[in-house]
Amino acid sequence: MKRSLSILALCAASLAPVVPTAANAAPLSIKAEQALLRALEDEYNAEAFYDAVMEKFGAVRPFVNVIEAERKHAAALTDLMQHYGVEVPANTRLGSAAVRAEVPATLAEACRIGVAAEIANRDLYAKDLMPAAAGHPDILRVFEALRAASENNHRPAFERCAQRK
């Protein structure tokens, strides 16, 4: 549990300066707005899947810890979107039957899906979202923190889970 708390603390600390100031808020490009929406959708998808896993298997690690981080990631993105006047959509996948149907039969398989999802998340930020937000240092700072959390915290936690199950 102590390691889990340190991961959450690290994520929270890296996202602390997410509210942009007027000095660094360039007008939001369409590409940057779309990047924010894609990032939020990805965080919502992760939250919905991890929630469905816990619905099936109980409040198990690492899902119980990573879902809290995903919620903080979504909140950081929401703060940015509100600052730029972008409408924040609801997480319509949370609690949906479609997401519940995606949950595999075993916890080990769910952990392997978590590994793949965190790798895809890392790559989405690095290859697509960060280039689309060029010129917006406030958005890039948040995207980099979220990319790093997937790579350095969430992926290793799911890898450990997949190995011990």
Rank of each mutant, 00 (worst) to 15 (best):
E43Y: 05
Y44G: 12
A22S: 14
R147N: 12
P156H: 03
A32M: 02
A46K: 07
A46S: 14
F49H: 12
E55P: 01
R93C: 07
A46V: 06
R112I: 03
D128L: 09
R93T: 11
V53T: 09
R61S: 12
H83C: 06
V86L: 02
C11P: 01
P137D: 03
L80N: 00
E102C: 01
A132K: 05
V18H: 04
L80Q: 15
I139K: 01
T106S: 11
L37Y: 03
L146P: 02
F57S: 04
T92V: 10
A32I: 07
D138C: 01
D128R: 10
E33Q: 15
A120L: 11
E87S: 12
A9T: 06
L5N: 13
E144M: 07
M81C: 09
V18M: 12
A101L: 11
A101D: 14
L5R: 14
L10Y: 02
P131R: 07
L10I: 02
N65P: 00
E109N: 09
N65D: 08
N121G: 15
K72L: 15
A108W: 08
L40R: 13
N152V: 05
V86Q: 04
A97V: 13
F57A: 09
G85H: 06
M1A: 15
A16P: 02
M54K: 09
M54V: 04
L8C: 02
Y50V: 04
C11D: 12
M54F: 00
E102Q: 15
A120C: 03
